[in-house]
Amino acid sequence: KMTIRVKGKELARRIAKEMKDRNLKVEIHEHGDEVILEIE
């Protein structure tokens, strides 16, 4: 399990899509400006 902190929703969406393309499970937690992606 891996956690990534990202500034900006646009970048977070791009990373999430990339991870889904690799068949990984992604959970997205938004905290205002910061987005936390949990990847399994």
Rank of each mutant, 00 (worst) to 15 (best):
L37T: 00
L24I: 11
R22Q: 07
K25P: 03
V35D: 01
I39M: 04
H31P: 02
H31C: 15
V26R: 00
A12Q: 01
E40H: 11
I39W: 09
K9I: 15
R22A: 07
E38W: 12
K25N: 10
E38C: 12
K25F: 08
N23M: 07
K1N: 06
H29V: 11
D33I: 05
K9E: 05
H29G: 03
M19W: 09
H31S: 11
E30Y: 15
K9L: 15
K17Q: 13
E27N: 11
K25M: 09
V6I: 12
T3P: 01
E38A: 06
L24P: 00
R5S: 05
E18Q: 13
I36P: 02
K7M: 10
R5K: 09
R22L: 09
K1W: 12
I28H: 03
K9N: 06
A16Y: 12
I36W: 14
K25T: 10
I15L: 12
E18G: 08
R5M: 08
K1P: 08
M19E: 00
R22N: 06
N23V: 03
E40L: 12
I15R: 03
M2A: 05
V26E: 00
E34G: 04
H31Y: 14
K1A: 09
E38Q: 09
M19D: 00
E38N: 07
K20L: 13
R22W: 08
G8M: 06
V35F: 15
K7D: 04
V6G: 02
K9W: 15
G32Q: 06
N23K: 09
L37G: 00
V35A: 04
E34S: 09
I28V: 09
K7Q: 10
R14Q: 10
A16M: 11
N23P: 00
K7Y: 12
V26D: 00
L24M: 11
V35G: 02
E34Q: 08
V6M: 07
E27C: 13
I39G: 01
V26F: 06
K20D: 03
I4S: 01
D33K: 05
I4L: 10
H29E: 05
V35R: 02
M19H: 03
E30K: 06
M19A: 07
L24A: 04
D33M: 06
E34V: 14
E27P: 00
D21N: 13
R14W: 08
K9S: 07
A12S: 02
G32V: 05
G8S: 15
A12H: 01
G8I: 07
V35Q: 04
E10I: 08
E10Y: 12
G32M: 05
E27V: 14
L11A: 07
K17E: 10
H29N: 05
E38P: 01
I28Y: 07
D33R: 05
G8L: 09
L37S: 01
V6T: 03
